[in-house]
């Protein structure tokens, strides 16, 4: 990871960027996002398998944009998020230096976003064993058991919206859940309000999720909300042959259609 530190230092000292968004060790040995704006601080940057925050979240926020031009430490799921956000006009290529990091903890530099597109297509992201097992378990359940599973899980939800807050794809500053005329989603954290919220969020992410799993990580009640997105992501691949975050083309799944989309339920 020395290469990463050196590169960050170089970018900051040359003035090419004013801030490097990356990872550092926080209190209790936990990894946390880092915003490095002085070359001498670049040494605290690190990257390893525990770095799970999706840093793409910070790339379009006013608070970080105000500092100046950014560089970002980007594991594969951040790379995908960057591509999605670019197709949704939330990021501009010339305002960002992308420091890719591979699962083997190697630094890759990208001359442009086109190169990111090529790279992510050549490097599929595998699901974590734990998540794969959970999905298998859910798929093996009867539908009523799945209902019960999610009802139990959602009963824990306190509507803190950490899942939304940590997700770079929740880029709206006014979410449907904040809308009260009509009150699409009930304010309270009761069974119906929680169910409506998680269903709506999963739908709004369908075809736009970079499968980072950060929403599940962020949940203080340990609800595996990310599995909703993971599963629909697999289903979407089966139905439409596409995955989000692999293209710079502006063709989001639910913004487009094909006359030969194949379903088996419309009479």
């Amino acid at each position: 990871m020395n290469k990463l530190k050196e590169k960050a230092k170089e970018l900051l000292s040359s003035g090419a960027v004013q801030v490097v968004v990356g990872y550092e060790e926080g209190t209790g040995g936990k990894i946390r996002p880092a915003f490095v704006s002085r070359p001498e601080d670049a040494d605290k940057l690190l990257y390893n398998a525990d770095c799970h925050h999706n840093l793409a979240l910070y790339l379009y926020k006013h608070e970080t944009k105000r500092i100046g031009k950014m560089a970002v430490v980007a594991p594969p799921f951040v790379l995908r998020s960057i591509l999605i956000l670019t197709t949704e006009f939330q990021l501009e290529e010339d305002s960002l230096v992308v420091l890719g990091v591979t699962p083997e903890e190697e630094l890759i530099e990208f001359a442009n976003f086109k190169e990111i597109e090529t790279w992510v297509n050549q490097h599929p992201i595998g699901m974590k064993e734990k998540d794969r097992e959970m999905l298998n378990r859910l798929n093996a359940m009867s539908r009523d058991e799945r209902w019960q599973f999610w009802q139990n899980e959602f009963s824990k939800c306190i509507k803190c919206f950490a899942c939304r807050g940590t997700c770079p794809m929740c880029s709206c500053f006014r979410c449907t859940v904040d809308y009260n005329a009509p009150q699409w989603i009930s304010v309270g954290s009761h069974q119906l309000g929680n169910f409506d919220w998680h269903l709506m969020r999963a739908m709004h992410l369908a075809g736009r999720c970079s499968v980072c799993g950060q929403c599940g990580e962020a949940c203080p009640m340990d609800i595996p909300v990310h599995l909703l997105s993971f599963q629909i992501n697999e289903d979407i691949f089966k139905m439409f042959g596409s995955r989000a975050g692999l293209t710079l083309k502006k063709e989001s799944l639910l913004s487009t259609w094909k006359s030969n989309d194949v379903e088996n339920f419309i009479r």
């Binding site: 859910l138 539908r143 799945r146 209902w147 999610w150 169910f195 998680h198 269903l199 999963a202 739908m203 369908a206 075809g207 909703l228 599963q231 629909i232 289903d235 979407i236 139905m239 799944l253 639910l254 339920f265």
Partner: peptide
């Protein structure tokens, strides 16, 4: 997508 999502939930 919605129908599949409902199934999943």
């Amino acid at each position: 997508v919605f129908r599949q999502m409902l199934e999943n939930m």
